[in-house]
């Protein structure tokens, strides 16, 4: 400590005196505090409106949008679904979702490799949360950066397509450790691929100390989606089922979930 001014500087010569002095301040706050605060705010919004928000993360081309299309086909009459699409450029994915009669907001991030809580908050201004039950946030296709940014979702869903390699969880541990559910997508291709072993993929996920369920799905084979659709229903029901029933607005949601 500098004895001349009481500041935390080690030597008196190392800093300017008379004009300014150095003071060390202990902080201990998350570097992403601002994003995390915004995410907590988003989550409150979702919860207040009875919306289950899910963050879909994967590499580009693993079939996130196709899975959403198939999910809308299967559950569109049961849940009121909304989608936020994140891409560097184009409205293509939002257009595909809108063609299913579901509201979709496209966030184009420019060169940014991930969505953050602020971008999602802005997108929420273009969605009517009161008329939604389920909100899918399709993150930018990227297995690295999206894992670091909380968006306010209630759960993370990671897709790993079987064309990618069963060791992806070991190569991208941060993202796969954060996943609450892992979908092995394009599973219809397993029969023609001899280099993807679902048991090995699971072993890599467990090595990350992640207990998440791992399901095989194919958007081209709707019958494979049943466990995924059941997971969605259970997630929604666990969170909001009782409140919805108590309010007497049973509508399609609770009826279909039973």
């Amino acid at each position: 400590m500098c004895e001349s001014c009481g500041c935390a500087g080690v030597s008196h010569e190392s800093h300017v005196h008379g004009e300014s002095s150095r003071h060390s301040v202990a902080v201990f706050s998350d570097i992403l505090r601002r994003n995390n605060d915004q995410a907590a705010h988003n989550r409150e919004h979702f919860t207040e409106h009875g919306v289950l928000a899910l963050n879909l993360m994967s590499s580009p081309g693993s079939g996130k949008t196709s899975l959403l299309e198939a999910t809308i086909d299967a559950l569109g009459d049961v849940f009121r679904i909304g989608v936020i699409e994140g891409d560097l450029a184009t409205e293509n994915d939002a257009r595909r979702i809108r063609a299913k009669g579901v509201p979709a907001v496209q966030i184009t991030t420019g060169q940014a490799c991930h969505l953050d809580a602020e971008m999602v908050h802005e997108a929420l201004h273009h969605l009517e949360l009161e008329s939604l039950d389920l909100l899918f946030i399709e993150n930018v296709g990227n297995l690295v950066c999206p894992a670091s940014f909380d968006l306010g979702q209630h759960a993370n869903v990671a897709l790993l397509s079987v064309t990618e390699g069963d060791d992806k969880p070991a190569k991208y541990p941060v993202l796969f450790r954060a996943a609450d559910l892992i979908l092995l997508s394009k599973s219809d291709l397993l029969e023609v691929l001899d280099d993807f072993n679902p048991a090995l993929a699971e072993q890599h996920v467990r090595a990350l100390a992640n207990p998440a369920k791992i399901l095989q799905v194919s958007a081209r084979r709707p019958e494979t989606l049943t466990p995924w659709l059941q997971w969605l229903r259970t997630m929604w029901d666990t969170r909001y089922g009782d409140a919805r029933k108590a309010a007497g607005t049973t509508a399609a949601v609770s009826a279909a979930a039973e």
Binding site: G6, H17, S20, H23, V25, V27, F28, S29
Partner: peptide, 29 residues
């Protein structure tokens, strides 16, 4: 962890030898 642990700030000294804010002196830190 992804933590900001501490920051060393340059503070203009109001009176010589006295930190501007008692919470920022080195002992507290």
């Amino acid at each position: 962890a992804l933590l900001l642990k501490s920051v060393e700030l340059l503070v203009e000294t109001a009176a010589e030898g006295k930190p501007a804010d008692p919470n920022t002196n080195a002992e507290t830190t």
